[in-house]
């Protein structure tokens, strides 16, 4: 698989504050990546560095095979950072024409991309008359003009209303289904969970986890149970080697699995022991729980 972006030991310091600390990861073609982290964890700074607008303090990064200069490589990249930035006095089309000139691509695709984000009927309206959602969609259209190898989105749904968020997510999914590599920075977990296959988790500029979203979950889930005789239930479960720790939560007993086990097996096992359950749920930790678990470790 070919590399699109390689970052190694990247560090950025603002005075005494280290915004990005010795960060390394690789982005490969065809995957959808998420950079996840609370506000101020260095997501935007990292993207700023690879996008040529923030100067790095130490470390390296290179685009593609490393033979092109950053600004030439960026012509094959589509990126949106935080706010949609356009010239307010130009119309949507005029703004996109300018982007075409900068990226040195033909202006033929402007209508196609405006269609994709649903702005074709507003193409001759001034940018300043757009709502935030429309601005954000125009930014996506602009980032797609060069049919980029990778689309970078930094908090694309920030500040949007539910419809706007939904529209943006639909567009992202549509683009991802066409095989474009996507790098999505966000502090919204479900956003990353819904869209991404790989994830890098940052906290205070340090990478805590980097790999598959599914791989983040090392555990095999947990069971929430309730029975008439809670003590007997617990004793029965402790005899079974599949269970690790137990926790009482109100009227429920929570048992964590050490190895994969089907709920029906558990039910059968308990039934043989003469225990009847009145409540039984098997769940995996949500990304949110895993994320909170990860980010509080250090």
């Amino acid at each position: 698989m070919s590399h699109i972006l390689t970052i190694s030991n990247l560090t950025k310091k603002y005075g005494s504050l280290t915004a990005v600390d010795n960060l390394s990861f690789t982005i490969e073609k065809g995957n959808v990546y998420g950079i996840l982290g609370p506000n101020g964890s260095g997501k935007s700074t990292t993207l700023g560095i690879v996008l040529n607008v923030v100067n790095k303090t130490e470390g390296h990064f290179h685009w593609f095979d490393g033979n092109t200069s950053t600004h030439d490589a960026l012509k094959k990249v589509g990126a949106i950072i935080e706010h949609p930035n356009f010239y307010p006095y130009m119309t949507a089309v005029q703004n996109l024409q300018l982007v075409c000139k900068i990226k040195q691509v033909t202006e033929e695709r402007i209508s196609e991309k405006l269609e994709l984000v649903g702005l074709l009927d507003r193409k001759d309206s001034k940018f300043s008359s757009f709502s935030l959602g429309m601005k954000q969609r125009l930014a996506i259209a602009s980032a797609l003009l060069n049919n980029p190898e990778i689309l970078i989105l930094d908090e694309p749904t920030n500040g949007l209303d539910p419809q706007g968020i939904h529209q943006i997510r639909e567009i992202i999914k549509k683009i991802a289904s066409q095989g474009t590599t996507i790098l999505l920075a966000s502090h919204l977990l479900d956003e990353v969970e819904k869209v991404c296959s790989h994830v890098v988790i940052l906290r205070k500029g340090v990478s805590l986890y980097s790999g598959l979203v599914d791989g983040m979950n090392a555990s095999h889930g947990f069971l929430t149970m309730q029975s008439n005789d809670m003590e007997a239930l617990k004793q029965a479960l402790e005899q079974n080697p599949a269970f690790g720790s137990f926790k009482r939560q109100g009227e429920y007993l929570i048992a964590y699995l050490k190895q994969p086990m089907d709920p029906s097996e558990v039910n059968e096992f308990l039934f043989q022991k003469g225990i009847v359950l009145s409540h039984f749920v098997k769940r995996k930790e949500s990304l949110e729980e895993q994320f909170l678990e990860l980010t509080k470790q250090k």
């Binding site: 040529n52 607008v53 600004h71 960026l74 012509k75 950072i81 356009f86 307010p88 900068i102």
Partner: peptide, 14 residues
């Protein structure tokens, strides 16, 4: 307008 940033991201060098 913050378009300097956007120009650079779009592939214009400084």
């Amino acid at each position: 307008y913050r378009t300097l940033k956007q120009n650079l991201i779009d592939g214009l060098s400084k």
